[in-house]
Amino acid sequence: MFYKRIFIFIGLLFCLSAKAVEPVKLKVAVASNFHWVLAELSDDFQQKTGIELSLSSGASGILYGQIRQGAPFDVFLSADETLPVLLVNQELAVSSSLSTYALGRLVLWQPNRDVSPREHWYNSLESLSEQDRIAIANPRFAPYGQAAQTALKPLANYDQITDKLVKAANVNQAFQFVDTGHAQLGFVPLSLLKRASVKFSQQVSRYQGYWLLPQSAHQAIEQKAVVVKRSKKQAAGQVLIDYLLSPEVQGKLAQMGYSPVKLAE
């Protein structure tokens, strides 16, 4: 009697789980800076296409390593262009799917500061005190950190500034260093500040004291996406990439702190 009940129960569980498998589920490896954006878009995406997204976020380099080792991801949304290209070169990704889905924008942020013109901000880098620190994502591997370094290089006091740089593991950490007051200034993605002003709307002014670096000040931060070759859902993966490139979504991205991608490539 007891066992019979257990069998019925297990049978029911199987029925339930079989039902849940029905929609196509896409496993997406997404760079941490884009995770919240994709999470906000995923409902809309599912409504339009019937494809469900399951997101795994992390540092792009780590996700790249996991895909190389056979992690079961269908699509890879990187924070840079190098890693997806590497995957294509190693024949681990579908080369026709490779596309830039967003352009990152870099800002120099100082909490609670009034928005000011270009000269003013560079001046503020020259008049830092002994104790002051500037947070930056590690330029050795983080695209936003590399862009920040490029922007700093032309400055006359570049050497002094380098001594003040604190290299964070990723842009989120660079943000935390400034947000907690341990660093006075920081180079962070605009999208992160947009996110923070939505999340912490009571102190929105804190996240509006930034200077948007002109795109001419650094190399373009192209975030590229690619469909993983091993995936059995390549078509669905391409649907996601096409969706991200649609004018409607690109318009939304502009509000979230990215520059829209020019589609005529």
């Binding site: 540092a59 380099g61 780590i62 390593g65 590690n138 050795r140 591997f141 593991a169």
Partner: peptide
């Protein structure tokens, strides 16, 4: 070590 891995 982590930096080396991240930088591939």
């Amino acid at each position: 070590l982590y930096n080396h891995v991240e930088a591939l």
